[in-house]
């Protein structure tokens, strides 16, 4: 793996993390925006091919956690990370990490569906092209596979060279997913991917998550307890920069251990 330096690789072998099933590991991970502490020591494990939903109200730090995983937080001036946040046993904030390569391995779908101002094809081919793939036939294959996996192919196959702005919001969000799939990531982060979508498009995206998790490790962020319940799987409840509770959806919704979780899922706040 290119983005690991040799000492890090050795470290990973020594600690034995890479041998286990753990894809993402946070140990007392803290994150600061200037003086403001947005994450106050998160301890969290995410297994390979697991779908974890991070649920919590605005300001709970869930998006900060997501943007730490692909270091997109680096774009914000004055931020600082403490503690350990590792993918495959390699510290994301460690020395010598190739951030561009990290981001390619950790794909991200944003809250608002945004198409780059170019054709549908070029949107999906954007990532592969930046990785140096120029061969037309190869690109066409990658684009088709990504669009099929994002369940968008049938709707756009006849107009791949139309401007992507002509797609509906729901289609643009699936295009965003296809764009991420085209760079063959290992982890897919989704930051409230349905917040700007109608109920039907939302259902399509939620259904897609269970397809994705067969091949990828998926982390979904949502503020909506109902969505967490619909999606199911594992849920981590974040509140004010802390991980309050984590467990299977059935436990979180039927007998939460923490009073705050109970209040949140029953709609008392949030």
């Amino acid at each position: 793996m290119r983005w690991r330096s040799a000492p890090q690789r050795e470290m990973a072998q020594v600690t034995g993390e890479s041998m286990t099933d753990i894809k993402i590991l946070a140990q007392d991970f803290k994150f600061y925006y200037g003086e403001h502490c947005a994450l106050k020591g998160i301890n969290l494990e995410i297994r390979r091919n697991q779908l974890l939903t991070i649920m919590g109200p605005s300001g709970s730090g869930k998006t900060t956690f997501l943007r730490a995983l692909n270091r997109l937080n680096d774009l914000v001036p004055g931020t600082r990370a403490e503690g350990r946040l590792a993918i495959d046993g390699v510290d994301v904030y460690g020395r010598g990490v190739d951030v561009a390569d990290l981001r390619r391995r950790v794909g991200m779908v944003f809250a608002l569906p945004v198409a780059l101002p170019m054709s549908i094809f070029d949107n999906v081919a954007y990532g592969p092209r930046k990785r140096g793939i120029r061969d037309r036939r190869k690109l066409a294959g990658i684009v088709e596979k990504a669009l099929r996996d994002a369940i968008l192919w049938d709707e756009v196959k006849d107009r791949l060279h139309d401007h992507a702005g002509t797609l509906s919001g729901g289609q643009q969000q699936r295009l965003s997913i296809a764009r991420v799939l085209a760079v063959e990531p290992e982890i897919i982060l989704l930051d409230e991917p349905t917040s700007g979508l109608d109920p039907l498009s939302t259902l399509k995206i939620e259904g897609l998550l269970w397809e994705l998790v067969k091949s990828y490790t998926v982390v979904l962020v949502t503020h909506n307890p109902l969505q967490s319940a619909r999606v199911g799987g594992e849920i981590a409840f974040f509140l004010m920069g802390e991980l309050v509770e984590r467990g299977p959806a059935s436990d979180i919704f039927t007998h939460p251990r923490d009073k705050r979780t109970e209040d949140y899922v029953s709609g008392k706040f949030g």
Binding site: A100, F110, K130, S176
Partner: peptide
């Protein structure tokens, strides 16, 4: 953000 998040 999209471009950077794709590893550009």
């Amino acid at each position: 953000e999209i471009s950077y998040a794709l590893g550009s």
